[in-house]
Amino acid sequence: MTKQSRTARRYNPADLDDDALVLKAKSELIHTTTAYEELMRRYQRTLFNVCVRYLGNERDADDVCQEVMLKVLHGLKQFEGKAKFKTWLYSITYNECITQYRKDKRKRRLMDALSLDPQEEGEEQEASTSEGSEGLSRLLAHVNPIDREILVLRFVAELEFQEIADIMHMGLSATKMRYKRALEKLRNQIDSPFI
């Protein structure tokens, strides 16, 4: 191998944009994970924050993040690039969060049916979050799951409305309308003396 071809193979992943990293990752994934790791590094913190806001606890959020990263690793070769990588990533995240949420809901129903106290586990999880985070989570608990996800994708993941609409399989105007209503509901809750 010549010196020039070795230099052409080396690159600094931090210097590449997402599209270039996706192309690199697709071509090198069998042999190396450098580009894939850079993509995950870029989105890891936001991905985790989205999951925590949606699921309400860090343990489940961490599990979902690991699952999302595995799905991206195995699915990157099939990623067609019709949407931005970021949109595709958050679409996977949204679906995994819904799956986890449903599992938790079934678990709570089972605990209720067995006359166990589901509050104990919830109190442990709440104790691990910070005060500000707890207040936001408490407010978001009063918003239905779809609207909560729109707010989380908008504020935590910082996605555009069209990207959110694509992820959630909704029309753009419906997404904007739900976003506006959810914000109004949150504002009303903040202004309410009972919260």
Rank of each mutant, 00 (worst) to 15 (best):
M1A: 11
T7K: 11
R9W: 06
L16H: 05
D18N: 12
A20W: 07
V22F: 12
A25Y: 00
K26D: 08
S27V: 09
I30W: 11
E37Y: 13
E38T: 11
E38Y: 12
R41G: 13
T46Q: 15
F48W: 09
R53T: 09
L55D: 09
G56L: 05
C65N: 00
V72Y: 00
K82E: 15
T87V: 03
S91W: 08
T93P: 06
Y94C: 03
N95C: 14
N95T: 13
I98A: 09
D104E: 07
R106C: 10
R106W: 09
R106V: 13
L110K: 02
S115Q: 14
L116G: 00
L116D: 01
L116M: 04
D117N: 15
P118Q: 02
E126N: 10
S128F: 13
S130T: 11
E131A: 11
G135P: 02
G135E: 13
A141C: 03
A141F: 08
I146S: 05
I146G: 01
E149F: 06
L151G: 12
V152K: 07
L153V: 12
F155V: 06
V156K: 14
V156E: 15
A157R: 01
I164H: 00
M168L: 08
M170C: 03
G171V: 03
S173L: 11
R178W: 00
Y179Q: 09
R181C: 07
L183E: 05
R187M: 03
I190T: 01
I195Y: 07
